[in-house]
């Protein structure tokens, strides 16, 4: 959002930032200008879409996971019909193509990648992290998932199976991580804070429970 505000503050006649633009940025602005001039889109529609995208955050995924951890019936519904489960939580997933939740267990870890581009459950989580779109991650997640996860600090034992999902088509994938041990006394809100974005992609597990102080 900060970039967007900064860009607007320095806009010239057609709403272009005054600072130096990359070739890709110039192309995007040129396409936008043509769409506006031809009346295909209005400025208000573009702004509304930017606000829609910016309003999606990984916190939506954390809410789904924490609810699934505390409510086994909700977990069943989340696995069986993820879009309906989102709706139940007040999360608008209507613009999502199709949506599959991958349940991690003590014996299985899932890892999500899009080797062809950067498919990601954006209507729920917002924009993917830059590393998710990098050639390095996209190439290595499929043929060296253990090495990639190790670089994220996640050393998966050989006895645990890794299932990589390459989201090449209409399906979008979200990992349901294993609830960390020692979190039995935490509230749903406290659990949400353990569900970091990267655990929804599967490269890491959720954060561990914070040890109690002074007991």
């Amino acid at each position: 959002m900060a970039d967007h505000v900064a860009a607007q503050a320095g806009e010239s006649e057609h709403g272009h930032p005054r600072h130096e633009l990359s070739a890709y940025a110039r192309r995007v602005y040129a396409i936008r200008d043509i769409l506006l001039e031809k009346g295909i889109l209005t400025g208000e529609e573009i702004q509304a879409q930017i606000e829609y995208i910016e309003a999606r955050t990984p916190a939506n995924g954390a809410r789904l996971v924490a609810r699934a951890w505390v409510d086994p019936e909700f977990k069943k519904r989340l696995l069986a019909d993820p879009k309906a489960a989102c709706s139940e939580m007040g999360i608008d997933a209507t613009s999502l193509n199709e949506f599959v939740v991958l349940e991690n267990t003590e014996k299985v870890r899932h890892l999500v990648v899009c080797t062809l581009c950067s498919c990601y459950p954006r209507p729920i989580l917002g924009r993917p992290p830059d590393w998710y779109k990098s050639f390095n991650y996209r190439a290595r997640a499929v043929n060296d998932p253990r090495g990639v996860m190790r670089e994220f600090g996640n050393d998966v034992p050989d006895a645990v199976e890794i299932r990589v999902h390459d989201s090449t088509a209409d399906m979008r994938y979200l990992v349901l991580p294993v609830r960390p041990k020692g979190t039995e006394s935490l509230s749903e809100e406290e659990l949400q804070k353990l569900v970091v974005r990267d655990s929804l992609i599967g490269v890491v597990d959720p954060l561990p429970a914070v040890p109690e102080q002074g007991v």
């Binding site: 998932p145 299932r163 390459d166 399906m171």
Partner: peptide
């Protein structure tokens, strides 16, 4: 490690 890990791809 050989034999355990799997890869899933969406294919038409």
């Amino acid at each position: 490690p050989w034999g355990r890990d799997r890869l899933f791809v969406d294919i038409y």
